[in-house]
């Protein structure tokens, strides 16, 4: 006889990804490596910001980079390797985001034992990367002035999923209509305690505050 049964599941749809993210977190912790997941829309300045961070801190810390890209073009990764730092390029094969499994493959190719910090450049996209945990210690969103001040209202999932907000290209504020109060109101609604750093990768404005935060965060990660 056939009978119908109701089964309670109550599982996160991205369970498999979350499990691999947890493995990554453990691997990073055991290697004493602080990892940041850097997300942004295309062209917001992820690579510029990573290169600036490297320029300002690589004399003190050993930094590795994982570059996620939708194509096989290794342009961003090449910029890092040309500085003599370890970088891994992950081609997502057209996919709109990095997932935990891709990042695990990337971590395996980096000399983790020699590193202090791994910066992960996610695929340029404000929608999909927010849903996929990677196992990094912090999620960083890089917004940029030319994108406009309405982005928190349009991409609530991303703005509520991040721990740190970098507002890049502030050198362009005089030339572009951008209502900072309206923007910050939207950010606060989604993420009241979000720490933010207005910066310019062109003029270096605001970068010292970011460096301080990164050093403090590394300390907190290692000794707490």
């Amino acid at each position: 006889m056939t009978k119908t049964i109701h089964i309670t599941v109550a599982e996160n749809i991205l369970r498999a990804n979350d499990e691999i993210a947890a493995e990554n977190k453990l691997l990073l912790k055991n290697s004493n490596v602080l990892a940041l997941n850097i997300m942004a829309s295309p062209g917001a300045g992820k690579t510029s910001f990573i290169l600036k961070t490297i320029a300002l801190l690589s004399n003190i810390y050993h930094i590795g980079v994982i570059e996620g890209d939708t194509s096989a073009a290794t342009l961003d990764a090449d910029k890092v390797t040309s500085l003599g730092l370890p970088a891994v390029q992950i081609n997502t094969g057209g996919n709109c985001h990095l997932d935990a499994n891709m990042v695990q493959n990337g971590l395996m190719k980096l000399p983790l034992a020699d590193l202090d910090i791994v910066l992960v450049e996610n695929v340029g996209n404000l929608v999909c990367p927010a849903a996929f945990k990677l196992g990094t210690y912090k999620n960083v969103l890089i917004a940029s002035i030319p994108e406009g001040d309405d982005k928190p209202y349009k991409y609530p999932a991303m703005y509520s999923a991040v721990d740190v907000l970098v507002i890049n290209k502030i050198d362009l504020l005089p030339y572009i209509p951008f209502n900072m109060d309206y923007y910050i109101d939207g950010v606060r609604m989604l993420n009241p305690d979000l720490i933010s750093f207005p910066v310019s990768c062109t003029t270096d404005a605001g970068l010292p505050a970011w460096m301080d935060w990164l050093e403090n965060t590394l300390h907190e990660y290692r000794y707490n």
């Binding site: 119908t4 049964i5 309670t8």
Partner: peptide, 11 residues
């Protein structure tokens, strides 16, 4: 973002 439940038939 979850699978809440499923219904199955069983012999």
């Amino acid at each position: 973002f979850r699978v809440e439940s499923i219904e199955i038939t069983s012999e």
